[in-house]
């Protein structure tokens, strides 16, 4: 599945039936997660706990987009790790600099 370029039509002139059920399934999952996010945004008071729910749901959505729509799930392990390891390091950077922002805040106020 990793490489579609070698695929050629089995019978030229004949177009196979579309196979789109998985696309719509992914769409409904992403829509449901987004709807849940809005529900939480309006029913729950703002807190660190609420923010962590938002971030976890965002990562879920990102997983479905990257794994299904971008097809990364069906690529080789090497390519998956090539993309995921730098992303993991970026999350580390994000957490480190938010902590740094808190430190600047407590130094100012």
């Amino acid at each position: 599945m990793a490489n579609h370029t070698t695929q050629l039509p089995a019978h030229p002139g004949e177009i196979p039936k579309p196979n789109t059920a998985w696309i719509w399934k992914t769409f409904w999952v992403i829509t449901a997660i987004t709807a849940l996010e809005f529900l939480i945004a309006f029913t729950m008071p703002s807190s660190t706990f609420r923010n962590s729910i938002f971030i976890i749901l965002t990562i879920f959505k990102a997983f479905f987009i990257v794994a299904e729509f971008m097809h990364l799930k069906h690529e080789t392990k090497g390519l998956i790790w090539t993309i995921m390891i730098p992303m993991g390091l970026l999350i580390w950077l994000l957490v480190a600099l938010i902590t740094e922002g808190n430190a600047i805040h407590s130094a100012i106020f």
Binding site: P86, L90, L93, L94, L97, I98, G101, N102, I104, H105
Partner: peptide, 17 residues
């Protein structure tokens, strides 16, 4: 993604400031 992560990290830092 590095560029966008830099933007969002900056946002996180400044917001927590």
């Amino acid at each position: 993604a590095f560029t966008f992560a830099a933007f969002l990290t900056t946002y996180g830092l400044i917001r927590h400031k």
